[in-house]
Design a protein around this nucleic acid. Structure first.
Lengths: 230, 230
DNA sequence: CTAGCGACTTTGGTATACCAAAACTAGACC
DNA sequence: GGTCTAGTTTTGGTATACCAAAGTCGCTAG
């Protein structure tokens, strides 16, 4: 469950994983990319045909994607792509406010012990580079990877598995609404990473809090702009 | 996923839910009760026979129980009951430290608005009564129900779905290691509930933090006492 | 007596087939 | 013309059957 490698588009169709995992990754990617719009029904037979697998792996994939918050299943009406509401976004940010602070604090504590932080540096550089060249395909992927690495650095696998669906939803939200102020976000990341390098948990936590909270309003307004009625 | 009612032993076998949900609840109950000890293999055919269902619902149940942290599945070796380690317990408490504080704060904010808090009062009374008569069967159930209600009061369904597996693991841990100081725990609950009633988020958060942290050491020692080697 | 190799058995992964319930549609009656 | 109802179709839920890989046990050769 921790595995599932990264789910960037280019890493989707490796023949290594089981058919169910592959179907799950592909379907999630299709949802995040907006191929399946919020509200559309995900019929099992239809998906099994589209993904060239049987219904059993499809059911498994749908179940896990429901746990990750991408689809919602009614008792006897099957699965549909989740309709994100403003309430959902607020709940998501409230939760991230707690968990990202914890992740940043843990990462800073680990880094203070002198552990290798090379991977974080590398991801930070990649994200900065993607931001600099306005690569709107790569920016959400790099930023998600950066946050994932911060969470992983803390060494709390339970936190990691709890945060993974939340980061997935953030990536989805960004794809739906468009990224907010990539430049400012990148600078915030830079400051956060520096605090982690320097092993300052309090500062890292405060910066993480600010970073999350700064993203709330733009996301709410971005979502409000594409919501059907109001 | 929010549904699944309560999973007290007596509410397990209602014929309303689907076969898979029933199987999931029964299996979880068996694991929490210790019928399936940590480390034993959960063979799909064996379970399907024991639960009188096919392998498909069993697979579904195992998958969800893995997401809740009760079982762990190796790539091609199937499912086993999770072996709880001291690291797992520490991670669990670190996460609860963040999330229960958030839940308490949210609940207090809601209660400050004058919403009905009758259900919380009722659960508090039940837990106090169970503690008073030393009903070691009921105490963990009542305490879990109380925490669940506090989380639910906040109105954050995402937090609710994130906390549910954690509370389930806490109940499991209590069943395995024995409850710590039920009297003191009950008093802490009383203070926490009062802060929520009174609509004092800061106080409620602080009390929740203390309540969680006070439970860490006893749980670690309780688990260390029953761990195979060390 | 031990170590290596091979056949067998167990087990998870997947596909196909069947069933029951719900939703949709078309028709008839009021 | 509208509404209720019955039949059909779609769809999720479940069971059975098949397959491939890995673990296990026993046999044989050194």
């Amino acid at each position: 469950m921790i595995a599932d490698e990264t789910w960037a588009p280019n890493a989707a169709d490796n023949g290594l994983s089981s058919s169910a995992d592959s179907a799950k990754s592909r379907l999630r990617q299709l949802i995040i990319a907006g191929e399946y719009a919020p509200g559309v029904r995900l019929r099992e037979r239809e998906l099994s045909e589209a993904l060239n697998v049987s219904r059993v792996p499809v059911r498994e994939a749908l179940q896990q994607l429901e746990a990750e918050g991408f689809v919602v299943t009614s008792p006897r009406r099957g699965a549909t792509v989740k309709q994100i509401t403003l309430k959902d976004v607020n709940e998501l940010f409230d939760l991230r406010l707690s968990l990202e602070v914890l992740a940043a604090r843990l990462a800073a504590q680990v880094a203070a012990g002198g552990r290798a932080t090379g991977r974080l540096q590398q991801l930070m550089d990649e994200a900065a580079e993607a931001t600099a060249r306005h690569d709107h395909e790569q920016i959400p992927l790099s930023n998600t990877a950066l946050h994932t690495e911060i969470v992983a650095m803390g060494g709390n696998s339970l936190l990691e598995s709890s945060m993974k669906p939340l980061l997935g939803r953030m990536q989805w939200l960004f794809t739906l609404t468009g990224e907010r102020d990539p430049q400012g976000q990148c600078e915030e990341h830079l400051g956060l990473c520096k605090a982690i390098y320097d092993g300052k948990p309090d500062l890292a936590g405060a910066l993480a809090y600010a970073h999350v909270e700064l993203g709330r309003e733009p996301s709410l307004q971005g979502l409000a702009g594409i919501l059907p009625a109001s």
